[in-house]
Design a protein around this nucleic acid. Structure first.
Lengths: 278, 278
DNA sequence: GTGTTAATGATCGTTTCTGTTCGGTTTTTG
DNA sequence: CAAAAACCGAACAGAAACGATCATTAACAC
């Protein structure tokens, strides 16, 4: 660019010389005061002053005898550990959900841990699609993906620390401004009469809106959910497009099918009597 | 090029000569006052005036003895990379910004690395307030805080991977739905005539909206910003409530004060100016 | 012609840049 | 580990550049 001549010529321009030094530094990774003296015909004091100026500008880091490029360290995540706590049921459900996804489509992911596993699989596979979520962990996961295949749209709002997700009016209205091909949700519990319930009403509101804005809605349900019941109702089983279950008994399966015909049992590894169709 | 006579032959138009100087500058990267005197047969005073005019037009950057090309920063470094540069200055600025915060208030934090440092200090100190941000790293930081003192409102939108921040229409409208006591912003560069510039227009839009929605706006400015100029304008210096600087020279400080009286120098590391008197 | 405006050059106190000196500190060497 | 060498940075002084100010000149309108 701007560094060609600059040999022992007259006295071109102090600023130009400094820019040149910065360029040399970028190319070589380091410079010494002695080199600068010889190269530009300046005194050591001036050389030091130049390097001090470059350091002030953040372009160099002073060392004894010269200067080097400022550190170029990497930024690492500390979330790897969270990934270790793997639940077999959730992994199986995530795997089955992954098979339902078509590249290039747009999906909602809620703030459950089950969909977190799904997000991880999506990133691992490098599937190209658009993910809309209110879950901070999912955002971190997708944003940190090595391959930029996944487009991420984050739903903002007030942070609910317990679940690390965004909720509230702003979150709901943000969800309302998007339409997706599919939504994957998980809930706190399912009642015997086919109602999905959650422990938090704000969270429930977001899930409900996601379901409303998606062409197809898929519930990811492990066996523990059948025993509990949340405080607020989100939706009815019969309003969903599909339900993936894991670890439920034949009897429970039959009960679910009374509310929704599209209930599929996902078994990976010999589990519970039935062998479901994967 | 249009370099006809150069000599004192005629004086067709000062503007033509300046355009010519600009051309020389583009080609060589720098010019000296002495060169201009010889080239055009003008006095040093006129040469300086020409260069001052070119600087006002953003075509040159004045230096002692001449002028060099302004660094037009169209490109942008990733968040991780920016985190490593001028970290000392950013820490000092963050510390000073921290002192401006009153507990229980609501603040906007933009997606710069400088405000990331500020967020970290807020979390460390456990100050109770509400933070509204479009920066994913800041969200992670605040959400992961051991003490739940900080209320977090996340601004969603489309994720811009390079800066790990949410931008776009959704982000802007989300910001618009909140009012804050204060906003802390950092920008790509500040031009001589007092305009804040950024490399990305989407990012700039969010910052602009934050400034509009905050009662007070504070700019965090390290010395590296004075040398560069971004592509899009965000706002004017005179529209801000306060400016905190680090590592700028006395002269630069005076220039900034012409646009905004509330410019404060925050020094905690490398001293500015020449022969620093303690 | 006369008045106005813009550009330029000259003067001069102030600022910036630079090299030298010198005492103190860090690194290397024996 | 001590001596030697190299390096550092504060302080000083000279040279160069700067910019505010004022006077001069040229172009133009009336």
């Amino acid at each position: 660019m701007r560094n060609e001549q600059n040999q022992a010529s007259a006295r071109p321009l102090a600023a130009a010389r400094r820019a040149d030094i910065a360029e040399v530094l970028r190319r070589n990774g380091s410079v010494t005061v002695a080199e600068l003296e010889r190269l530009y015909g300046i005194s050591s004091m001036t050389a030091r002053r130049d390097l001090a100026e470059l350091e002030r500008q953040g372009l160099a880091r002073r060392t004894h005898g010269g200067a080097v490029l400022p550190d170029i360290a990497a930024h690492e995540d500390s979330f790897a550990k969270r990934l270790e706590t793997a639940s077999e049921a959730k992994e199986a459900l995530a795997e089955a959900a992954l098979a339902m996804i078509t590249p290039q489509e747009t999906i909602f992911l809620d703030s459950s841990t089950t969909t977190y596993f799904l997000a991880r699989r999506i990133v691992e596979e490098g599937i190209e699609l658009t993910v809309i979520t209110n879950s901070l962990p999912v955002m971190e996961l997708v944003a940190g993906a090595p391959t930029p295949g996944v487009e991420l749209i984050g739903v903002g709002g007030a942070l609910r620390r317990l679940t690390r997700s965004y909720v509230g009016p702003l979150a709901v209205s943000a969800v309302r401004s998007y339409y997706a091909d599919r939504v994957f949700v998980s809930v706190k519990g399912v009642t015997p009469d086919g109602a999905l319930t959650d422990a938090d009403s704000l969270e429930a509101e977001v899930k409900r809106q996601m379901i409303a804005q998606a062409a197809e809605s898929v519930l990811l349900l492990d066996a523990t959910k059948l025993a509990v019941r949340g405080l607020t109702a989100i939706a009815k089983l019969d309003g969903l497009s599909a339900v993936l279950t894991h670890g439920v008994t034949d009897k429970q399966l039959a009960a679910l099918r009374e509310h929704n015909a599209e209930v599929k049992a996902v078994e990976r590894g010999p589990r519970n009597g039935r062998g479901g169709r994967t």
